[in-house]
Design a protein around this nucleic acid. Structure first.
Lengths: 117, 117
DNA sequence: CAGGATCCGTGTTGATACTG
DNA sequence: CAGTATCAACACGGATCCTG
């Protein structure tokens, strides 16, 4: 609130806080998997299947964080056993725009970066 | 090459590797400071002055990483004492485009995220 | 002036086991 | 199925001292 807009040097700078979130190991991958999901909704186990290497704990933590931040919606079917569906919110989808721009840049230039070293 | 444990989700995931870099604590700030720099070149001590809170070690580490990746150029004046100038490369400047889009998103939506919790 | 070397606290990640 | 709980390992970041 009192932080100046665009002030990267403020500890509460929004850009840094955003990068703290999408920069964590599994967040960006989860967002992409959800964005690419065919029905829009993906269940927990299916998410884990599409994110090779993620542990249950980390997937759970990641999804909780994204849900708290309003980027992901969580819908529970109270069946036995329960089914939990995750999907991007409007906010999450809006993040996809700059994020996909970043992905394009990454895909175009990271190879050059690797060979350059 | 033998696959290492933990990161075999996709042998080529440039996006995550990019986020690993710009998601670290000081990288995005360094890029922005260099992008906004008036003469384009900034010396080590000046960079540290413009990045409140960064330690010598972290600034050094950050700049080495950026330099290895070809995002930052390092120019040394062999004087005594030496002067080292840092600047963005063309590649670094091209990253500024998607990165500034991300900054705009952050400034517009992070407040909503905070209030939403 | 620029940055390397070292030590260390802390947070994040991960493996494993357990539960409603 | 969809998590939670616990413990251990490790990388990150910070403080400090040292050097060409």
């Amino acid at each position: 609130m009192t932080a100046k807009r665009g002030d990267l040097f403020d500890p509460d700078c929004p850009t840094r806080r955003l990068l703290d979130r999408i920069g964590t190991k599994w967040t960006s991958m989860a967002v992409k998997v959800l964005a690419d999901a065919d029905p829009g909704e993906v269940r927990f186990a299916e998410l884990q299947r599409r994110m090779p290497g993620v542990s249950q704990k980390m997937l759970s933590t990641t999804l909780q964080s994204l849900t708290r931040d309003g980027l992901v919606a969580r819908r529970v079917e109270p069946t036995v056993p329960p089914k939990v569906h995750y999907s991007l919110t409007d906010l999450g989808r809006s993040l996809e725009v700059p994020l996909s721009a970043l992905r394009e840049w990454a895909e175009q230039h990271m190879a050059a970066i690797d060979t350059g070293r």
